[in-house]
Design a protein around this nucleic acid. Sequence first.
DNA 1: CGAACGACCTGCAGGC
DNA 2: TGCCTGCAGGTCGTTC
Length: 270
Amino acid sequence: MPELPEVETCLRGIAPHIIQQIVTTIMIRHAKLRWPITAHLEDKIKGKQLKKLTRRGKYLLFQFENGVLIVHLGMSGKLRLLPIDSKVQKHDHVDIYFSNNICLRFTDPRRFGAILWTESAASHPLLVEIGPEPLTANFNGKYLWHTAKQKKLPIKSFLMNSKIVAGIGNIYATEALFEAGIHPSKPAGKISLVRYQKLATAIKIILKKALKKGGTTLKDFTKSDGSPGYFRLELKVYGRSDEPCPNCKTPLKSKKIAKRSTVYCSRCQV
DNA sequence: CGAACGACCTGCAGGC
DNA sequence: TGCCTGCAGGTCGTTC
């Protein structure tokens, strides 16, 4: 489910409730995720204090005094805070219990997610090659243009490569390309600097809008069921194949790019 | 080396 | 009702 805004919203929702707390115990019901959960994880984090919770791309980094727990939500993963005695349901694979009687529960039907322990996140192979965060200043049109030189792959695949930029998934790649008026199949190396500047701006605006929406959703977070709740930004083209283009009313088209569904307007995006 | 593809999983909607 | 197919917001490891 989650792309960068959802992961960030999840982080902001859970962090205040568990930062500085100490892990009392953990419960692993299903260790087989994308990779097996790190063996003897309990030995690593039991009795340890959670110092910080940060994000790199779509990876959540739970920073303890002695190392970092890396959590990825895959396609269908969720993290929720619950009372310690909450009823367990199907796909509730992992619980981490904290000293303030809160249970952090990882639920993931498809099990594409990951939970891994590392002593040095800075050099971890999953993190070390991730590109710039899209909401920082060093991600901009010039960076994209420069990095795309000579590349023939479709701009959409280029954008969804986490080595190029962190956290852009199928939805936001689709939406940003529509906003920027760029055809998703256009070879990355054949797009002008000016158009890349427009694209970088579109990415930043869309992500910020989604974050704001997530922040609004978060208001219910502590009050209701303890779930950050997934939210859906009003999407202009994603999931709207055959509907009229919001700009020109031409029916939106849809095609597969690298096996991912892609919606676009053949008139507005060139 | 970069780019394309397969693989990992479950759940759901739609067609027959 | 049941079976089959295709689809889903990710991305690493392998192959070409």
